[in-house]
Computed example of a mutant assay.
Amino acid sequence: MAGFSLAIVPDGLESNKGNIFMASTSPPCVLTAYYEQFQRDFSLFLKCRSEELVAEGRMVLTFLGRKSQDPSSKECCYIWELLATALNNMVSEGLIEEEKVNCFNIPQYTPSPAEIKSEVIKEGSFTIDHLEVSEVNWNAYQNGFKFNEAVDAFNDGGYNVANCMRAVAEPLLVSQFGEAIIDELFKRYREIVADRMSKEKTKFINVTVSLTKIG
């Protein structure tokens, strides 16, 4: 799973202490920095892809995104906030240096349909054929599939989500915190995620856009 991967972590995130992504406690300057980096990177992405396509060639993109206009809304940032909780718990126990968490931020942006549409129009290489939003449960096994007792372990939502996020984030985390803390971090993260999933509905938001090259 991933939102739009940024080329770099945006500048100006020094005030995002205690967070590792956009969050409900992030100051407005952090949200602005992320959005402006998304604008630059997505515009360049569209320009580069347009050079690879013939006239009227088509491209379909799917991002993790959000329906809300709020870039720090739970529907796109909650999954990272819970990982930050696990990291900060380890800071409080002296297992991780606080400064390492304060200067660590995920290079990703989860755009809204309006933000995607705005950048496509502004960049000018494509027209939008179709733009839609869909929802997927954090735990894929809640989507109507049934399993026998032999595979009940796979019905552990916390386990599934933690492993999915580990596949995405582990290289970044290892480069910042070292490999020694990873197993313990994701053990705690699994427990936090499982607790949240038992108390509320948790879903990822996908934004899909179909584009046609102009010319």
Rank of each mutant, 00 (worst) to 15 (best):
E123P: 01
F104I: 02
I106Y: 08
T110Y: 08
S125F: 04
V120R: 09
E115C: 15
K117L: 14
S125N: 09
H130V: 00
G124E: 03
P111L: 06
K122V: 05
P113L: 11
C103R: 10
H130K: 04
D129P: 03
D129Q: 05
I121Y: 12
S112H: 07
V120N: 07
F104S: 00
E123I: 00
G124D: 02
I128F: 02
G124A: 04
E132R: 04
S118C: 14
H130S: 07
C103G: 09
A114M: 15
N105A: 09
K122Q: 12
E119A: 11
E132A: 07
I121M: 13
C103W: 05
F104M: 02
S118K: 15
H130N: 07
E119R: 12
I116F: 13
L131N: 02
A114P: 13
S125I: 02
E132Q: 09
G124L: 01
N102W: 06
Y109V: 10
Y109S: 13
E123T: 02
K117S: 15
C103M: 06
N105E: 06
N102F: 06
I128E: 01
E119V: 15
P111E: 10
A114Q: 15
T110R: 07
A114I: 14
H130E: 05
A114N: 15
I106D: 06
C103K: 03
A114F: 15
I128K: 03
D129E: 09
E132F: 08
E132T: 02
E132P: 00
S125Y: 05
S112A: 15
D129N: 08
I106Q: 06
T127H: 09
N102H: 10
K122L: 12
N105C: 07
S112K: 07
I121L: 13
I121N: 13
E123H: 00
I128C: 01
H130A: 05
P113Q: 09
E132V: 02
N105V: 05
P111D: 12
H130F: 02
G124N: 03
F126G: 00
E123C: 01
L131T: 00
L131H: 01
P107E: 08
H130C: 04
Y109R: 05
H130L: 05
P107I: 03
T110C: 13
Q108W: 09
A114T: 14
S112Y: 09
C103P: 01
A114W: 14
N102L: 05
N102G: 04
K117R: 14
N102V: 05
E115I: 10
G124I: 03
K122Y: 09
E123S: 05
Y109W: 13
E115K: 13
S112Q: 08
P107Q: 10
E119K: 10
I106E: 03
F104C: 01
I128S: 01
